[in-house]
Every structure is written in C-alpha cells, then in structure tokens.
C-alpha cells in the first residue's frame, strides 16, 4: 500500500492506495499522527484508491478520527468504493465515518 499526503487550504488529504489491512494500517495511522503533530487536525482520507479494507484498517481510521478530534479537528472520509462502504455499514460505522463524495468538498459547510 502507498500513502500520499497533500496540503489544502485548511485541511490535508491522505490517499491510501491498495489494500488497507493489518499490514498497512499503521502507515495510515502514522500519517495522521504526523499531521496532527505538526498542527493539521482537519484531515480527509480519500479512499478512492483503497480497493479493500478490513477490521484493522477500520481500527486505524477510528484511532485517527479520535486523534484529530482530540486536537480540535476532525477526520472525514471521501470517495469510498463499494467494498469500503459495505464494511462500514456492516460494522455500524457508516454514521461516525460518513462518506463524502469528494475529498475537496468533505469539509464544506453542510
């Protein structure tokens, strides 16, 4: 799995690509902790390139969500493919991690 991070106006976007499992989940968590540590606590995880997520991947998203909120920010997800949306629904996480259509608009006023 690859993780790329880009800075935007007021938030950062993380794009994990490939399979987000126990092997790769620590990478995502590290990327978010790094952003929060450097003062960016509004984070979008763009899942368009995440072809598969398991419970470890979900756990890293929940841990990252808590880390951003603790720092006064928030974590939002965007562009989740069907497999990811299915797993979010099965775990009842589709409300706490609501999927936004695009990373660019995930922090727009609702």
């Amino acid at each position: 799995m690859n993780v790329t991070v880009t800075a935007h106006d007021g938030f950062a976007v993380i794009r994990p690509s490939g399979r987000l499992t126990m092997v790769s989940a620590p990478q995502l968590r590290h990327a978010v902790d790094d952003l929060v540590g450097h003062g960016t606590s509004r984070v979008v995880v763009d899942l368009a390139g995440t072809e598969f997520i398991d419970s470890s991947g979900l756990g890293s998203l929940i841990g990252a969500l808590k880390a951003t909120r603790l720092a006064g920010g928030d974590l939002r997800i965007a562009a989740a493919p069907e497999q990811v949306r299915t797993v979010l629904r099965l775990t009842n996480l589709d409300r706490v991690l609501r999927n936004h259509p695009s990373a660019e608009t995930a922090f727009d006023a609702e």
Partner: peptide
C-alpha cells in the same frame, strides 16, 4: 458481537460472521 463505534479493534470475527 460488533464492538462500539469508538473501538479500535475487535471487529474482525464479527465481520467474518456477518458475511
């Protein structure tokens, strides 16, 4: 069973059971 929303682990076997 499926753990609470804020749990960071413990969903694996519950997910397998679900599918």
């Amino acid at each position: 069973s499926m753990p609470a929303e804020d749990a960071e682990s413990g969903r694996g076997l519950a997910l397998a059971l679900a599918v």
